[in-house]
Design a protein around this nucleic acid. Structure first.
Length: 661
DNA sequence: ATAGGGTTAG
């Protein structure tokens, strides 16, 4: 109540959400927040003001922060330091004001306040130094550091170093972190736990995880924060296995994990797609009682959804007391990436209808569903949302738009988005290369890769998949081989089965089946389903039952539940006219109760998506559609086109077949 | 001094 009273005197810029986070924050600190009785009756309170200012600073809320500043100016009489009782209070408010401006990135204001402060302490200097470093004005920041050092009244202390380190959170500030590391060492601060923890965090944020790990290993005393800093740092840098191993190691020690440790280790499980380990952590979370923490719930839902178990994710979703932008994004991504595209679209539309503030993360997540069976018109609406909300600078959103347009068949629009981008990352290039490849424009895909090299963007394993895909379209096996070679030798990326499968597919399409077989036998790793399927597919195109049989046998071992080897072998036998063999294999497949997945096609007309399966009569305009189809078939035959009978479908009778082919 | 989310290929 007291806080609300103080705030109402301040200004309407202090929103209710700020108030609620303030109150929540107060409970966490469990420090009593009471009005200074000596100032009762005066519309001002030093303690609340400084706490609100610090809160604004931490969250980067400049507007309410500067409103508080205005209020301070109004009550300037209270800042008379001739009243010695007041000195401490006055200093605390001034310091929070400097901190607020510096943490909001407003260094010129921070400096003005700092210069006019009647008294300063080390904390005042610390805010100025870290503020300038955070906005990467490194020279100025160090200027303050030197000035502080040379003035005889102040000396840096461990807090100065931790506050500098907390500003060093980007790789280009690594040199500063290293310098501070030296100062820590020279001054014998290395065993101060908060200092070492800040150093660890800074090294990880600067992508120098080895140094971070070394600092951690050399600490004689470690607390939860030390452990969590490394576990989360490793997970954020995508060293998921190391992160999870360390978490496991921590459990055999004496330091108890907290909710932050659990959410970090769950994030490692997500990255590893490790369902079993994820469930184990879930068990620990239940025992610890952190299970109704929203961060934990989001981490759990994400873990389950990335591991492909949406049922488990839904269970947590239903039990959750509240949702926020992160947990909603987790669900949205889960739906979009687990084959529930329609639900994802519905979820997104509901979010918009409920008035939820859509953020760039949600947009890039929903853009991923386009091109499956969604409406292109909706995709365009989302693009207009992007423009309205000024998300056009976000690389994730732009990359999503490139993919959305290219998957919906609009390559021109993809190119426009790509060309307009000011900061392209490797995913942008990969997406555009893939877009050209997808549209059969292999040469342009390769040209774009040349440009990518000129602009010194490092390719990734996905780049090479798209490039191989492009080579496959041009029919240039040699070029593909070259890429596979340079991938390992020049860029140090070891090819995965997917890359090898692409090459097998390429050799196979070119009819070089013997070579493809030899290539597979020389592979450094287990070929797996994709590779054998590529070889078998090629044999089915070229009608080679000898190598086909070889591939089918391996495929059966790798994927005993798949109908593909049976269907493709049946096709090969058909093309060779070996009807008995064909009948035998179909019988065997039916005996195994395997069924080929039905192919489907979609078309969008006037905002409505129509789907079709071979031979179906479900569509309300079926009658007309088949009439047009027959007319087209007649025209084709008149034009000299004959059905390719080598692709006779296994479960259709002869009369039916010609129509379908 | 420590936490949960987003885009690419197949």
């Amino acid at each position: 109540m007291k806080v609300r009273w103080v705030m109402s005197k301040f200004n309407s810029h202090l929103t209710s959400s700020l108030l609620s986070s303030f109150l929540k924050n107060r409970n966490q600190n469990s420090r009593n927040l009471s009005l200074d009785t000596r100032n009762a009756g005066i519309v001002f309170n030093y303690v609340d003001t400084s706490r609100l200012l610090s809160l604004c600073g931490r969250r980067g809320h400049l507007r309410p922060g500067s409103s508080l500043h205005a209020c301070i100016i109004k009550h300037s009489s209270l800042f008379d330091i001739r009243n010695l009782d007041n000195i401490r209070n006055v200093l605390v408010v001034w310091n929070s004001l400097v901190f607020m401006y510096s943490n909001c990135g407003q260094l010129s204001y921070a400096a003005k306040v700092f210069d006019r402060m009647p008294i300063k302490d080390t904390i005042s200097w610390n805010s100025m130094i870290s503020g300038y470093l955070r906005v990467e004005e490194i020279e100025t920041g160090f200027g303050f550091f030197k000035r502080m050092h040379s003035s005889s009244d102040f000396r840096f202390d461990p807090a100065t170093l931790t506050s500098i380190l907390s500003a060093c959170d980007k790789p280009n500030l690594l040199s500063v972190s290293k310098l501070i590391h030296c100062l820590i060492f020279v001054n014998g601060y290395e065993q101060e736990i908060p200092v070492a923890n800040a150093l660890i965090t800074s090294y990880f944020k600067c992508e120098c995880h080895n140094s971070g790990r070394r600092v951690f290993d050399e600490m004689s005393q470690k607390n939860v924060i030390s452990w969590t800093a490394v576990i989360s740092g490793l997970a954020q840098r995508q060293f998921y296995d190391q992160s999870f191993n360390l978490f496991w190691k921590m459990r055999s020690g004496s330091v108890e994990p907290n909710s932050l440790t659990y959410s970090s280790s769950l994030s490692a499980c997500s990255g590893l797609r490790a369902l079993k380990e994820g469930r184990q952590v879930h068990g620990l979370v239940l025992k610890s009682g952190f299970d109704s923490d929203l961060c934990i719930e989001s981490a759990l839902m994400d873990m389950y959804s990335k591991c492909g178990s949406m049922e488990d994710a839904f269970r947590i979703f239903k039990a959750a007391a509240e949702m926020d932008e992160v947990s909603m994004t987790v669900i949205l991504v889960g739906l979009a990436q687990n084959g529930l595209e329609e639900e994802a679209v519905r979820f997104f539309i509901n979010m918009v209808k409920m008035g939820i503030d859509i953020d760039p993360n949600m947009v890039s997540a929903i853009l991923g569903v386009f091109g499956i069976d969604t409406s292109f018109a909706l995709g365009q609406q989302i693009h207009s949302l992007v423009i309205k909300k000024s998300f056009g600078v976000n690389p994730f959103v732009n990359n999503g738009l490139i993919n959305m347009y290219s998957k919906c068949g609009n390559l021109e629009e993809s190119m426009k988005v790509f060309d307009r981008m000011t900061h392209r990352n490797s995913v942008s290039w990969n997406s555009m290369i893939a877009a050209f490849a997808r549209h059969g424009r292999g040469f342009e895909a390769l040209q774009l890769y040349e440009k990518m090299r000129i602009e010194s963007v490092e390719p990734t394993d996905v780049t090479f998949l798209s490039l191989l895909h492009a080579c496959s379209h041009i029919g240039s096996v040699d070029k593909g081989m070259e890429f596979l070679d340079s991938m390992a030798k020049v860029h140090g990326i070891s090819p995965r089965v997917e890359h090898y499968a692409c090459l097998v597919d390429m050799l196979g399409r070119a009819g070089r089946l013997v070579e493809a077989k030899r290539f597979i036998e020389g592979l450094p790793l287990e070929p797996g389903v994709l590779v054998w399927q590529a070889l078998l597919g090629a044999c089915s195109i070229h009608g080679d039952s000898t190598i086909g049989r070889f591939a089918a046998d391996h495929l059966l071992l790798a994927a005993p539940e798949s109908a593909t080897p049976y269907v493709l072998m049946a096709n090969i036998y058909s093309s060779e006219g070996r009807w008995e063999e064909r009948a035998r294999i179909i019988k065997k497949m039916k005996g195994m109760k395997l069924k080929k997945e039905t192919g489907m096609s979609w078309i969008e007309l006037e905002n409505k998506v129509h789907s079709f399966v071979v031979g179906d009569r479900i569509h309300p305009q079926s009658e007309t559609i088949y009439q047009v189809l027959e007319e087209l078939i007649r025209l084709m035959r008149d034009g000299g086109y004959v059905p390719d009978e080598s692709f006779l479908h296994y479960d259709l009778d002869q009369d039916f077949n010609e129509e379908h082919l």
